[in-house]
Structure formats: C-alpha cells, structure tokens
C-alpha cells in the first residue's frame, strides 16, 4: 500500500514537484485569506493574469522573472485603482477591462518577441520541470511573506475588517494596503509557477474559502487553509502521476473537491451537518 506513495519518489522531478507543492500550497491560502475576507478574490485573478506581460518581457530582456512579473502585476492593480479614482466606473468593470487587456498584451508580446517561452506552461503551470534553484527562490519568498504576515497580523486584521475605522485611528492604511497588494502579487507569482496564471487563483482562494466554512477566526482560516492547500497540491501531484493528468488542473480540481466536502459536511456550516437551530440571537443576512 505504502509503495503507492513512495514509488513516485524515485524520480527527482516528482520529489521537487511535491516539495514545491507543499511550499506553495501552504503559503497561497495564508495571503489568499485576506482577499476572501475583503471580497476581493477576483482582484487576485486579475493580478494573476496581469503577470503575463511582465513574465514575457523579463524573459526577453533576460532579467529575473519575479521582478518582471511583480512590476507587471502591481501596474495592473494600480491601473484599477486609477480608473476607479478618476471616474464613476465601478470596480468590477475596471477589473474586467484590466484583466483582459493585460492578458492580451502578454499574448501579443509572447507571439511577437519570439522568446521561446512555453505558453501552456505559463497558463496552466509546469510543476514537473521545477529546478532546485526555483525551490530555493520559493523558500526565500515564502519565508519572507510568512514573517511579514506574522508581524502585521493585527494591523491587517483591522484594515481588512474596518478600513475607515482603521484610518480614523491613524493607521497608515494606504501603505498597509499597498503592502498587502504587493504580498498578494508575490504570492500569485509563487502560485503561478505551480498551476499557471489562469489557475493560480484556485490556490489563493479555494483552500481559504474552504477553511472559512470550518472556523470563526482569521488566523484559524489561514492555518487550516494552509494545510488544505498543501494537501491539495500533494494529492494533485500524485493524481497526475498515476492518472497521467495535467498537474495544475488536477490540483485545482482537488481544491474544489475539498471545498465541496466542507460545503456539505462542515460541522458548523455544512448543508447536511449544520445545527438545525441557529445560535442565540443570530443576525444573518
């Protein structure tokens, strides 16, 4: 029985893929939780797609892909903020427009610059070709993000719960928000390496949303989400090995399966399992 789990470990690329999966699957939901509680999950999707032009240009100019993708993603966020500030246009329209335009720009650059980048890999991930150097970079990035979340947990809780209240109390909300968006962008760059720009949002949002159905506090949501994300990644890698599935989509589907299980069977909020009588004095809308 155990050999089902150990056999694939004979291959180095599988070992690397599992390591990367544990790492990225564990980190993405922690930052992703901030998107979920602010109802900004689609912003994550927009930023993920906005990474593409930067990735292509970075490859073309021979600079670090993280740098290119980061600048590109932040420009996307900036464009949305700018459109909203300058007009009556609502955030969903600004996001849709930015999403499509950056993605289109990325594809145009990819086809005209002749960079020999693999479009499939960019869109859906290419975890089986992960190198030791990429893992090292990912570890540094992940540890940095975790330290920052640890340091800024309370201010970010305040900001994402009651932004006006936080600003009224003198918190530097603009800086904190910009920092949070930078963290979201970096996390998406991590996620993209595993499941691609199109599916990165699944790792950011899926496990965190699943955890939201199970617990009542943000830090618990992050911890449970992190475990679920790591588990989904590992299961996805094994499924893709044995069933010959594309790894990124396999991981995304495992994420959704876990969500579905929580939606149906969560002890507190599951469709089949939630207590029949609500708690005293509920104020559900």
């Amino acid at each position: 029985m155990l050999h089902v789990l150990t056999d694939p470990l004979a291959y180095e690329f599988i070992r690397y893929a599992l390591l990367m999966g544990l790492l990225i699957g564990g980190v993405c939901p922690i930052i992703g939780s901030y998107l979920v509680v602010q109802r900004l999950t689609l912003l994550g999707d927009v930023i993920a797609h906005a990474l593409l032009p930067g990735l292509v240009l970075a490859h073309f100019w021979g600079i670090a892909f993280i740098l290119g993708a980061f600048i590109s993603g932040m420009l996307g966020t900036g464009l949305i903020t700018w459109i909203r500030a300058q007009s009556r246009i609502k955030i969903d329209a600004a996001m849709a427009l930015t999403f499509a335009s950056f993605f289109a720009l990325g594809i145009v650059l990819l086809s005209t610059l002749n960079t020999q980048l693999d479009l499939d890999g960019l869109l859906f991930g290419d975890i089986l070709s992960v190198t030791a150097e990429e893992i090292r970079q990912a570890v540094i990035l992940a540890v940095g993000l975790l330290v920052l979340v640890g340091l800024f947990y309370r201010p970010l809780l305040f900001l994402t719960f009651d932004r006006l209240g936080a600003e009224a109390m003198g918190l530097p909300v603009s800086w904190l928000n910009a920092g949070l968006m930078a963290a979201v962008t970096l996390t998406l760059i991590l996620g993209m390496q595993m499941v691609g720009v199109i599916l990165a949002i699944a790792l950011m949002v899926g496990p965190a949303t699943t955890a939201y159905l199970l617990v009542k506090e943000l830090h618990q949501m992050m911890l449970i989400g992190s475990g679920l994300g790591a588990a989904a990644s590992v299961i996805g890698v094994y499924l893709s090995y044995y069933l010959d599935l594309p790894t990124g989509p396999a991981i995304a589907l495992v994420v959704f399966t876990l969500f579905l299980l929580a939606l149906l069977f969560s002890p507190s909020q599951g469709i089949f399992t939630q207590p029949k009588l609500a708690q005293p004095g509920p104020n559900r809308r």
């Binding site: 809780l157 936080a166 939201y212 617990v215 943000l218 618990q220 809308r285």
Partner: peptide, 15 residues
Amino acid sequence: IDWDYPTTVWNVVLM
C-alpha cells in the same frame, strides 16, 4: 461593517 468577517468580539474590542 461586514458582520460575516471571521473574527471574535474580543479581537474587535482589542482593535
């Protein structure tokens, strides 16, 4: 306020 935000009475007062 979004009252579905995952946090407790204690954490809000602590803010």
